[in-house]
Design a protein around this nucleic acid. Structure first.
Lengths: 338, 338
DNA sequence: CTGTTAGCGCATTCAG
DNA sequence: CTGAATGCGCTAACAG
C-alpha cells in the first residue's frame, strides 16, 4: 500500500510536505507541489480515509436508515439522499431495518462503531426511542425522516400526513361516499396515527360519526389479511370506499379485490398515501403524493448543517407538502352498479 | 470519546487486557474479564472501527455498486446483498452509478479511499473496464454482478440471458407470432447483447430471417422514444409482438401504447426480461424472471470467499437460471382483432 | 494470565 | 516555505 511516506521518499521531501500538497494547506512552492503531484499519480496513491478519520475525528460518512428498501417511496428517498450527500462530499452508508426493531438496533450499533458523522433516521416505530437515545448519548447528530418518535425533540423532515389524509378523504366525500373505511399501518408509527387523525378530521367536518368497524390496523409492509377485508365488506352497512394507509397496503387490497371479483372503482373506490414508483404501467391510484426525493435531499442538507454547526441551535422541523392526485381508482359510489 | 485506555484505567488493568476481552483473544481470568465488561457497559464503550481497520488492514466493509437503484431488479439484489453481508459480519456501502460512467468513477475513487475489503460490481457498461482495472491495480477483490465486462476475466454472478431470451421469443413463436420486434438496452451492456443473441437464436431455430428494422437499441433506464415506436408499428409489415430488453423498457412501451389506443395483448403482445416488483397491482407481463435476491446473496458470498481466500484460485462463474412466467401480456397474434 | 513496545497512515502543532 | 515530533485508538508480537 502506497503511503505519503513512499511519496515523500521519492520526492525528496518530508511526509508533511506531501500531506500539505494533498490538502492544499500551508505554503508549498509550485515546483515541489508539481513534483509531488506527479509522483502521487505515478504511484497510484490514494489517501487512506481510515487513517485520516482517526486523526481528524470525522469520517465524512453519513448513515441512512430506512424501514423498507423495497418500497418505492424509500427508494426515492435514498436517491435524494445519495445525490445530496455525494454533492456535499459525504459517503452514504445505507441500512434497511425492515420495520424491525432488532435489525434497527444492529444497525445502530454498527453506526456507532463506524463513527459516522451523522444519521438520517427513519424510525421503525415509536419503540425506536431507545435507539435515538443511544445516538444522542454518543453525541451523533441525527435527523428524523418521515416518521416522528414521541418524546424526541430533534431535527426532522416529515410530510403533512394529517392534512394529506384529510384532503384524500374529503375527495371521497365530495364524490358522495359516506361509508369510508381506513386500512392503516401500525399505530406505533407516527405517520399512521397522523393519517388516521386526518381521516377523522374529514369525517367530523362533514358531520359523519367515525365507525370503529371501518378502521383496520395492519402493517405498512403489505396487506395480506384477506379475512379482515372480507369482514369489512360483509358489514351490514359496508364501505363504498377504502383509504389505504400507504401504497403497499393499497396494492395488497387491490390484489385481493381482483381475486374476489370486485372491480375498482366501480364497486369500491380505493385511494392511498404515496405513489407507486416508476414500474407502474398505468397510473391508476388516486393518491396523496409526497416529494420523496426532497425528503432525502433536504434531510441530508439539514443533517450536514447540524454537523457543521452552520444552523441555529433550535431543532428544525421541515414539513414537506403533499399533493392530491386524482386518478382512476376513485369514483362516485355505485358509479356503474347503481 | 471513551477509549480502551479509559476502561483500562478504571479497571486497573492495561489497555491490552481490555483489547483481549473485547476480542476474546488470549487468556484472561474470568474475574478481570467480568470486571472489564462491566466497566465497558457503564461507560457506554463502543470500539472505534476506524482505528481497528487501520491496524488490522481490513474494514469489514463491502461496496455494492449498482446501475439503477430505482429498478426493482436491483433493489432486490440490494436486499439479498445486504442480508448476506450482515449475516457474515460485513457492512455494505451502497453506490448507485445511474448507468453513468462518470458517477461510477467517482464511486470507484471513494471505494479506494475507503479501503473496503471488496466490491460487488454491476458495471454501467463495457466501458467500465478501466474502473475494474483500477480496482485490480489496488488489489481490491471484486465480483461482477449481472453484467460481464469484455476483456475481464474474474469472479462473476450472472443470469442466463441468452437462454432466457430464446425461451421468451420461442414462447411468442409458439403463439404464432412471426414478426417479433426487439426493443433493447444499449448494446454496450453485455446483458443486452446476450439477450439479442438469444432473440436471434430463437428466430434462426424457426427459420425466420432476422429483420434489422425490427430491432431497436435504446436504454435500460426508460423507453421514451415514442417516434421510434411509431415507425416500428408503421412498417409495411409491422410486428405483432415486442420483446422488451428489460422491465422498464416494457413499462415505457406499454404506457405509449395505452396513449396510442393500442391494446395489449389484443393488438400487440409485449414480453420482457425481469419482473416488476412488489408494487404491481396485477401481474400482467409475460416475463423471464431472474432470482434477483440470489444475485445479491450469492455475489456477496462469492466475494467474501475470495477475500478470505477460502476458494480455489480459478475465477468462479456463477450463472443463475431464469424462469419463464407466462401471464397476460402475450397472446396469439390478432387474438381478438382477427 | 498480564503488560510493554511498536506501528497502522495521517495531520496538527511548532521549530527551523 | 519545509520538517521533526507527537498522537488519533487500536492490536500483534513478544516479555514478563
Amino acid at each position: 500500500m502506497v503511503t505519503i511516506y513512499d511519496i515523500a521518499k521519492q520526492a525528496n521531501v518530508s511526509a508533511m510536505t506531501v500531506s500539505k500538497v494533498i490538502n492544499n494547506t500551508g505554503k508549498i512552492s509550485e515546483k515541489t507541489r508539481q513534483r509531488v503531484k506527479k509522483i502521487m499519480e505515478d504511484l497510484n496513491y490514494v489517501p487512506n480515509s481510515m487513517a485520516r478519520s482517526l486523526v481528524l475525528q470525522e469520517t465524512k460518512m453519513l448513515s441512512l436508515l430506512i424501514p423498507d428498501i423495497t418500497n418505492p417511496f424509500f427508494t426515492t428517498v435514498a436517491r435524494g439522499a445519495e445525490d445530496a450527500a455525494m454533492r456535499l462530499g459525504y459517503k452514504l452508508l445505507f441500512g434497511n431495518s425492515d420495520e424491525n426493531l432488532t435489525k434497527e438496533k444492529e444497525y445502530v450499533d454498527m453506526i456507532l462503531s463506524t463513527r459516522v458523522d451523522g444519521v438520517l433516521f427513519s424510525a421503525a416505530s415509536d419503540l425506536s426511542g431507545p435507539h435515538l437515545q443511544t445516538l444522542r448519548t454518543h453525541r451523533i447528530p441525527f435527523v428524523l425522516l418521515d416518521r416522528a418518535v414521541p418524546g424526541f425533540d430533534c431535527d426532522a423532515v416529515t410530510g403533512d400526513n394529517r392534512e394529506g389524509a384529510r384532503r384524500l378523504v374529503e375527495h371521497l366525500l365530495a364524490l358522495g361516499h359516506r361509508r369510508i373505511a381506513m386500512v392503516n399501518g401500525s399505530l406505533l408509527v407516527s405517520t399512521a396515527r397522523e393519517r388516521l387523525t386526518g381521516y377523522k378530521d374529514a369525517l367530523k367536518l362533514n358531520d359523519i360519526p367515525p365507525d370503529d368497524e371501518l378502521i383496520l390496523e395492519m402493517s405498512y409492509k403489505q396487506f395480506a389479511d384477506e379475512e379482515a377485508l372480507h369482514r369489512l365488506l360483509a358489514l351490514p352497512s359496508p364501505p363504498t370506499a377504502v383509504f389505504a394507509g400507504n401504497n403497499f397496503i393499497a396494492v395488497g387490497i387491490i390484489r385481493k379485490l381482483l381475486d374476489m371479483g370486485i372491480s375498482v372503482p366501480d364497486q369500491l373506490s380505493v385511494v392511498c398515501f404515496d405513489d407507486l414508483g416508476a414500474s407502474v404501467i398505468d397510473p391508476f391510484f388516486t393518491v396523496v403524493s409526497q416529494p420523496a426525493y426532497q425528503f432525502g435531499a433536504m434531510g441530508i442538507q439539514l443533517l450536514i448543517e447540524r454537523i457543521k454547526g452552520t444552523t441555529t441551535p433550535e431543532w428544525k422541523k421541515l414539513i414537506l407538502p403533499s399533493e392530491l392526485i386524482v386518478r382512476n381508482s376513485s369514483a362516485p359510489p355505485n358509479a356503474h352498479a347503481g
